[in-house]
Design a protein around this nucleic acid. Structure first.
Lengths: 68, 68
DNA sequence: CCAAAATGTTCTCCTGAAGATCATTATGCA
DNA sequence: TGCATAATGATCTTCAGGAGAACATTTTGG
C-alpha cells in the first residue's frame, strides 16, 4: 500500500488543516482526505504544493509499504 | 514541479512500456502518460504497482523540483 | 457561556485515468 | 530485403473519485 505521512508531517510542525489549506491554496477537503488517508488519487499539483509548503520530498510524504 | 522518473527507471532496467503494463496490470495508456510525463493526476494504486514492480520507493519515482 | 474558528460531512461538477480501438513505427526472422 | 509481429502513438468514450463549496458539528479561548 501507499502510506501518506501528511498527518505526521503536520503534527511535527503543529500545523492545522486550515493552515495547510490556506497556505498551499489546496482545497481543505483535499487536505482532509490526505490527512485521513482516504484519498486514492492525487493531483501532481497538490503533491507539489505540499512539498513546497512542508519543505519536504515526495518520498517523505508518500511511502510504499510492502504488504504481502 | 513534480518530476516522474519512470522513463529513467525503465531505461536502466531496459523495460518496455508493454512489459510494465502487462506485469503491473496498469493500463498501457497510463504507463505511457507517466513515461512521457503528461500525467497530471495519479492513482495511488498505480504508484503502488510501479513501486512493487520496479522495487523502488515513491521518492525514486517522483521528485519535487523546486523552480522559482 | 458564547462567538469564532476548526473540523467533519455531504453534495455537485468536472477532470483525467481506464479501457478499447485504430494507425504508425520498430523489430526479428526467413 | 520483404513480411509478419510486436510495440508504440494517437484518439475516443466511459466513469470513478478528487476538487470545490456549502452546511453541520465540534473545539477553542476570552
Amino acid at each position: 500500500m501507499i502510506k501518506c505521512h501528511l498527518s505526521r508531517l503536520m503534527g511535527e510542525k503543529k500545523l492545522k488543516i486550515v493552515d495547510v489549506a490556506r497556505e498551499t491554496g489546496v482545497n481543505r477537503g483535499t487536505i482532509t482526505r490526505l490527512y485521513h488517508e482516504t484519498a486514492s488519487r492525487v493531483e501532481l499539483d497538490v503533491i507539489e504544493a505540499l512539498c513546497r509548503y512542508l519543505d519536504c520530498e515526495v518520498g517523505e510524504l508518500f511511502e510504499y509499504v510492502n504488504e504481502k
